[in-house]
Design a protein around this nucleic acid. Sequence first.
RNA 1: GGUUCCGUAGCUCAACUGGAUAGAGCAGCUGCCUUCUAAGCAGCAGGUUCUGCGUUCGAGUCGCAGCGGAAUCACCA
Length: 596
Amino acid sequence: MSIEKTLALALQQSLRELYNIDIPADAGLIQPTRKEFEGDLTIVVFPYVKLARKAPDMVAKEIGDKLCASVDFISGYNVVKGYLNLSIADSFWNEQLHAHFRDTAYGQAERLEEAPILIEYSSPNTNKPLHLGHIRNNLLGHSVSQILIACGHPVVQVNLVNDRGIHICKSMVAWLRYGNGETPESSGMKGDHLVGKYYVVFDQHYKEEQKELIEKGLSEDEAAQQASIMLEAREMLRKWEAGDETVRKLWQQMNQWVYAGFDATYNRLGIRFDKTYYESETYLLGKALVQEGLDKGVFYRHEDGSVRVNLTDEGLDEKVLLRKDGTSVYMTQDLGTAQLRYGEFQPQKMIYVVGNEQNYHFDVLKLVLGKKLEKEFGNSIYHLSYGMVELPSGKMKSREGTVVDADDLMDDMVQEAKNGTEALGKFDFPEDEAAALYEMIGLGALKYFILKVDPTKNILFNPAESIDFNGNTAPFIQYTHARIRSLLRKADGQEIDINGPIAENCELGTEEKQLIKTLYRYPQVVLAAGDNYSPALIANYIYDLAKQFNHFYQETPIFKEEDAAKRQLRLQISQWTATTIRNGMKLLGIDVPDKM
RNA sequence: GGUUCCGUAGCUCAACUGGAUAGAGCAGCUGCCUUCUAAGCAGCAGGUUCUGCGUUCGAGUCGCAGCGGAAUCACCA
């Protein structure tokens, strides 16, 4: 049982005995003591003073006495203005150290026997390469998956590729018209970039043509509708839906190029999916659900023939679920894929990692499935809604070329890592090792930069300023880890057996105790990160830990320490710290080096 | 216009879900490499937490109003 839980129960007991007050066992307000006060854990007694009808300090004192007597690891207490600061005995912290410092899986909860959590993320369109916004999505999805696994949950990671639709047809038309048979091989371009290039080409010609038509006297709307290149794209989509062989073949060819490109990017990011869905295979799903809603009378057929749902009672609007020509809209297939997945995995929860621009869509999806169709799985849908990545100039727009390309950015970061390393004069690496290190540092810096921010908030990225490598960054944390590994190598070289006989109840210095307290907290941070779907909690914790370690490292000699027990203690704390950093960073999808 | 979200140091972000004197990094200024890796450590400076009213023993956090910004309100996805 955790120390907080033990204390909460003891507090509940004390309040009952002292004042006949009943509080829930988990309601005790217990927090780490602020460092400017003496003590380790603090109980705020204000909530009880009214019921106890005594002064705050008196209540704190009485509870303090009671807890001292009933909990053996409390070694003392002090009271400051209604705050009861409890001191925990060194022996308790020593026990924690000895119990965990060797555990390479520290922070991994026992696997729960339960239904899996399904998480969908990435979900790219196949008409353009990934940009920084997609990177945030991918990193979040991957990291939250790792965190949930660390919390003990079985997790199924899925991707839903949007491989069909008018946007892909645009690339296809432009490639046919202007491509001269260009391929990734012939051009040396990554496949997703090549297809993205023709998406832009389409837009350029489309705009030119519109301009010409407007000069001939057409209205803007008419020009947008009648431009020949757009008519061609529409015809292409119609043929695709009719199963036209030539169109399907070209479509497959160009999508294959894109997938090869995506795979390379996913690999570099360290991302893998358990299952990939393709919209070309799922876009017809959901029509049965729409019919079911009609039969139940919760949907209705509008006079123009479309099927709609009225959500005005819920504070939302009317929503079209099926076009008047009977074809699907986005919502239709999302209804269908939710049902499909539920049937396949019986997940306890379905998480969708999708930007907050789609909040409305998911509100509707949940309401329609849960409340209107009364599907149990509708209520298990959770929209992990994250903020946009913005540039100083505003939102990124693919067609206007104001996007930060994912592959380019990764290249830049790795180059930056190389420059930085060389500027610091660290050259003692073989070439292949150095390349791997730059990759680790560069991508680490990028991933951490994104993940340390609360997912719900927007991120501002300024391409003119490179991402930092100092301070609250991955390289700082990676460096701290490398330092510790260096210490441990040195211990090994001196044939000091860290795991050997353990000094019982070593007296703890301030820095040592502080580190143990922080390390002890890690599993709770992982659980909190899981509850809140927030890698940022892990990132901020690991930074705090690394910072504390560097302080300790500076203040406290290890190999110069003559007392063997103390040296042993410090090495054990160091090892526990290294493991926790490694495991925590792993949850962010970031690797840490042994040397840097 | 309706709905939702956001507003904390010059900049980028924290603040354990209502608790003690709001903390970090970057940028600026000072020190520390014959000593376990200076991508580090220590220090200085920087705040009316957008404004006002309210609830509370206690508000950056909750409520109301205003100001400013973003998203959304498609038979696009």
